[in-house]
C-alpha cells in the first residue's frame, strides 16, 4: 500500500518535472529569437534594417507562431503569425512586406506570387532576407496549384490572387496552408482570413511643396479578424521609417526623426 503511494508520488513528480522542462524549453524557444531581436532594436522601437535584425540564417523555432517585427507584435493577438493561418491585408503595400519580415529574418523562406512589381530593396530594408525570397511573377491561371506547391517548401507565402477565387478553391488552399504549417499573406481580400490588417490613414513626412524629400510615412494600421483577433486593434507605425525600417510612431520618435524639415534647395 505504502509502496504504491510512493510509486504514484514519484510518477507524479516525474510528470511535473517533464512538464516544467517542456514549458521552459518552449519559453526559451520563443524567447531566444525575440531576445536577440530586441538587441537589434534602436531606442524608440526602430529595428535595424536588413540582416541587422538577426544575422545569418537562423533556424525557426518550431512553435505555433512565426515571429514578426517587434512594432507589429501588439497588433496580432498571438504576438506573431499563427502557423496555418491566412492573413489578408486589403491592398498591396509595404505592410505586407513588414508582416513577413520578422519570420524571413529568422530563417523562413518567403515565396512571392503575382507581384511582379515588388520592390526588393524596400523588402530588404523592411527586414526580409533577399537570399530567401522566391519570386513567381506570373503564376498563371493555375495559380492555386502553384501556391499549394510553394507552400510545401516555404513557410511564408505572399500572394496577390490574379482573380477572386471561388469558395471551393479558397477552402482547399486554406486546408493546404493548415496542413503545411505555413502562413499565407494575401495582398487583397480573402473571405476566410483569420487576421485582417488594413492601413486606414497615412501621411508622408519630410516633403513640402517643392522642397525636401520623402523621408518617412506615419500610418495607422487597424487589425481585426476572427476568434481571438475579433477585437479591433489600431496602432500608429512608421512604415517606412527614415531608414526604411518599421518602427512604432510615438511622440518621442517623431521628435527624434523630425528635428526640422526645412527645404534643402
Amino acid at each position: 500500500m505504502s509502496a504504491e503511494v510512493t510509486q504514484a508520488a514519484r510518477m507524479a513528480r516525474v510528470a511535473r518535472t517533464a512538464q516544467a522542462t517542456r514549458v521552459a524549453q518552449t519559453a526559451r524557444a520563443t524567447e531566444a529569437p525575440l531576445r536577440r531581436r530586441d538587441d537589434g532594436m534602436l531606442p524608440g522601437g526602430a529595428v535595424l534594417p536588413g540582416g541587422g535584425v538577426l544575422p545569418g540564417g537562423g533556424i525557426l523555432p518550431d512553435d505555433a507562431v512565426l515571429p514578426v517585427l517587434p512594432p507589429l507584435r501588439k497588433l496580432l493577438p498571438a504576438g506573431g503569425l499563427p502557423r496555418g493561418s491566412v492573413v489578408a491585408t486589403g491592398n498591396w503595400s509595404l505592410l505586407c512586406l513588414a508582416l513577413v519580415a520578422g519570420a524571413s529574418a529568422a530563417g523562413a523562406w518567403c515565396a512571392v506570387a503575382g507581384l511582379p512589381y515588388l520592390g526588393v530593396a524596400a523588402a530588404a530594408d523592411a527586414g526580409l532576407d533577399p537570399g530567401r525570397i522566391l519570386l513567381i511573377a506570373d503564376p498563371g491561371p493555375g495559380w492555386p496549384q502553384v501556391v499549394a506547391s510553394l507552400l510545401d517548401g516555404c513557410e511564408l507565402m505572399l500572394l496577390r490572387p490574379p482573380d477572386r477565387p471561388p469558395a471551393l478553391v479558397r477552402r482547399r488552399l486554406e486546408a493546404t496552408v493548415r496542413r503545411s504549417g505555413g502562413v499565407l499573406v494575401v495582398a487583397g481580400d480573402w473571405d476566410g482570413a483569420q487576421i485582417r490588417l488594413l492601413v486606414s490613414r497615412q501621411e508622408w513626412a519630410g516633403i513640402g511643396a517643392g522642397h525636401g524629400r520623402l523621408r518617412a510615412r506615419r500610418v495607422q494600421v487597424v487589425a481585426d479578424g476572427r476568434g481571438a483577433a475579433a477585437r479591433p486593434r489600431a496602432r500608429w507605425l512608421w512604415l517606412p521609417g527614415p531608414d526604411g525600417a518599421v518602427a512604432v510612431a510615438d511622440e518621442i520618435s517623431a521628435a527624434r526623426f523630425w528635428p526640422e524639415t526645412r527645404s534643402t534647395g
Binding site: 522566391l134 519570386l135 493555375g142 507552400l151 510545401d152 517548401g153
Partner: peptide, 20 residues
C-alpha cells in the same frame, strides 16, 4: 524549397521562378 521551386518551374517554365 528547391523541390517546391523546381515543381513550379516544371509547371510554368524555367524563368518563372526567380531569386532576387
Amino acid at each position: 524549397v528547391a523541390r517546391a521551386a523546381l515543381r513550379v518551374q516544371a509547371m510554368l517554365g524555367h524563368d518563372s521562378v526567380a531569386r532576387p
